[in-house]
Design a protein around this nucleic acid. Structure first.
Length: 447
DNA sequence: GATTAACCTGTA
DNA sequence: ACAGGTTAAT
């Protein structure tokens, strides 16, 4: 667990308007990223020298524990810095290039870098004046492509809950039910170390005593939902693993819902305990490639009433009936189109209280932590100043990533990446399919 | 089928 | 009271 070789960061050119880690990793899509604030000196030191114009240097490091490695990220205004750390035994010098290529492929898949976010913002702004008004202050907000199993459990936790608490619950669950993959010094004080836990497999959470244990961990009534859903999943779809792939059969079954229609996939998700329309739609959007799906919650309802003049109960709260849910959802899809779910997340994030001090005038500056006191609501329109000198919009170059992947792959064996080497990374087939879809979307103008 | 109370726990 | 709802009972 100790003594992994510290690997330096690699640089990937990426405009912050294509991806803002500070926004995306904290807006309630994923709840498992560790976030470290960097000290001034540190943020400059460990990074490759920047040629040319001065750029805003990283202020934070973000870390996520995958099944077989920890991915560490930092970001400047035009570059994503990444490195992966492996558990012992360390990869040999000969297998390292493949591992690094896998990490890059994972980044490309997880952040959906083949999707040109600037194009999408353009299209949404053209269709919708409300979006046009918000867009400048909330750039770089995109949909992650998460693991469906983790996503399912995380969003069962989300009912009647807030981001801060969901985060604690999910991390507590990983600590309780996974063995630490490795330990890593904190970016600031290398004397302190943090253990990194992967997300536990379905068969682990399906054990009968899990409900009770999660109760003691503060999950409340969601504790039994999780255990029962895990049990249903493994009973119905199996726990078998493959020789070179530690993922369980039921996880792969969930993953395969990506290939089904929105309606079919939703139908399957609704069978689980603790999953109704809203949670199902979150999973469809965030891990099953259903980009048009809009999860309608009370918050979205507020936004819809405030900015789009949609009906709601007089004054205060109203119950979200299935009928009202469908009305709101289809109305918003009508406004935003194919990638409506992505647009919804931009507005949702823009409206999050903890992001009220987030803006593009300071690209690297993250919002205050969830739960951290933040400025009371103020006139949004009044805050749209002081962001004139934002970096000129540079089109994303997906080819950069693809080229790097293939170069790295060739270094290894002269062949393309084996499909299932890294279960959490995209398989080769998946990547090819994805590329096609994006290409079609990008090239087809909106009606 | 549509409505409604109860649900765990933390924070405003 | 409310938090990015859901279950179980009318």
């Amino acid at each position: 667990m100790v003594g992994m070789i510290p690997t330096g960061f690699k640089a990937l050119p990426l405009p912050i308007l294509q991806l803002s880690l500070a926004a995306v990793l904290r807006c309630g899509q994923s709840f498992r990223w560790s976030i470290f604030q960097l000290q001034e000196s540190e943020s400059q030191a460990s990074l490759p020298p920047q040629a040319g114009a001065p750029t805003v240097q990283p202020t934070h490091e973000y870390r996520l524990c995958l099944r077989d490695r920890v991915v560490c990220l930092r970001q400047s205004s035009d570059t994503l810095f990444y490195r992966s750390v492996y558990p012992d035994p360390q990869p040999t010098i000969t297998q390292l290039p493949l591992r690094e290529a896998e990490t890059l492929a994972w980044l490309n898949d997880y952040f959906q870098l083949d999707v040109n976010l600037l194009k999408l913002y353009e299209q949404w702004a053209a269709r919708d004046k409300v979006f046009a008004k918000f867009q400048d202050r909330f750039g770089g907000i995109r949909m992650l492509r998460q693991d469906p199993w983790e996503n399912l459990i995380s969003f069962i936790c989300s009912s009647n809950n807030n981001i801060s608490r969901i985060t604690k619950m999910v991390q507590g669950l990983c600590k309780q039910y996974s063995s630490p993959l490795l330990s890593l010094p904190n970016p600031n004080s290398p004397t302190e170390e943090t253990l990194y836990y992967p997300f536990p497999a379905p068969s682990v959470l399906a054990q009968p005593d899990v409900g009770t244990m999660l109760r003691t961990l503060g999950f409340g009534y969601r504790a039994e939902f999780i255990q029962r859903t895990a049990k249903m999943l493994v009973d119905e779809h199996g726990t078998a693993t493959k020789l070179d792939d530690p993922s369980e059969e039921s996880e792969r079954w969930l993953m395969a819902l990506r290939n089904k229609s929105t309606t079919e996939a939703r139908e399957e998700l609704l069978k689980f305990i603790g999953v109704r329309r809203k949670v199902a739609d979150c999973i469809l959007l965030m891990s099953l490639d259903k980009n048009e799906v809009i999860p309608v919650d009370t918050h979205v309802h507020q936004i819809a009433m405030k900015h789009y003049g949609m009906k709601g109960a007089s004054g205060g709260k109203s119950n979200m009936t299935p009928k009202l849910y469908d009305e709101l959802s289809s109305k918003l899809v009508g406004i935003w189109g194919d990638y409506a779910g992505w647009a919804h997340t931009v507005l949702f994030t823009a409206d999050l209280k903890s992001f009220s001090n987030y803006g593009l005038s300071t690209p690297g500056t993250p919002p205050s932590l969830p739960g951290t006191p933040s400025p009371k609501k103020r006139s949004r329109a009044s805050q749209v100043t002081s962001q004139d000198d934002v970096t000129p919009i540079t089109p994303i170059a997906p080819s950069t990533v693809k080229r790097k992947i293939s170069i790295l792959a060739e270094e290894v064996s002269g062949l393309s990446l084996p499909p299932d080497t890294l279960p959490e990374a995209v398989s080769l087939a998946d990547r090819v399919k994805r590329r096609r879809r994006i290409t079609r979307t990008d090239s087809s103008p909106l009606p």
